[in-house]
């Protein structure tokens, strides 16, 4: 998929683990792992809002578009 999630980068910037993020926003580690690994097919606005709030970033920082060759 040409959409890449930079969740790991944002987590590193905030020195936060996936488990901590999971506890803060109330989304399971399994779901966050799907998002982190790029296996997710869609993301809800509400989830995006929670993650952006917890990591103090914008959706643009989390998602990146790379055209497929």
């Amino acid at each position: 998929m040409p959409i890449i999630t930079n969740l790991d980068v944002q987590l590193a910037k905030n020195k936060m683990s996936l488990t901590e993020l999971s506890e803060r926003i109330g989304i399971t580690i399994a779901n966050l792992s799907i998002l982190k690994s790029g296996k997710a097919r869609a993301i809800r606005f509400s989830t995006l809002e929670l993650i952006c709030n917890a990591l103090n970033c914008t959706p643009g920082d989390l998602l990146e578009y790379t055209p497929e060759e």
């Binding site: 989304i27 779901n31 966050l32 799907i34 998002l35 296996k39 997710a40 097919r41 869609a42 993301i43 809800r44 989830t47």
Partner: peptide, 8 residues
């Protein structure tokens, strides 16, 4: 269903 499951 898969789409639903992989929607975070």
């Amino acid at each position: 269903k898969k789409d639903q499951e992989l929607t975070i």
